[in-house]
């Protein structure tokens, strides 16, 4: 089962993940005005929520991470040296 962690300090309560998730995994907690996970069983780890979250407030555990052969490793090495 997928475990999804929300960093409540980082979450800005924009609700983008709630709107974007096709399987209604998230719901807006209207008291805290933060996203909460209500249906992790239906998460298919597409990670659309990661892409849309402006605060990078999510972590998905125990998922299949797709290969990322599109990454240019040499560019990454240069970036690593700069950061």
């Amino acid at each position: 089962m997928v475990e999804i962690l929300i960093d409540e300090d980082a979450c800005v309560g924009c609700g983008s993940c709630v709107d974007d998730c096709p399987n209604d995994v998230y719901k807006m907690n209207e008291e805290k005005w933060k996203t909460e996970v209500v249906n992790a069983d239906d998460c298919m780890a597409c990670l659309s929520c990661h892409e849309i979250c402006p605060a990078q407030a999510m972590t998905h555990k125990d998922i299949h991470v797709a290969k990322r052969l599109y990454i240019d490793r040499r560019v990454n090495h240069v970036l690593e040296r700069m950061i």
Binding site: P22, C46, L47, S48, V65, A66
Partner: peptide, 10 residues
């Protein structure tokens, strides 16, 4: 195509 994402597509 039901849904597309950066890590998986349904």
């Amino acid at each position: 195509i039901d849904h597309v994402g950066p890590n998986a597509c349904l």
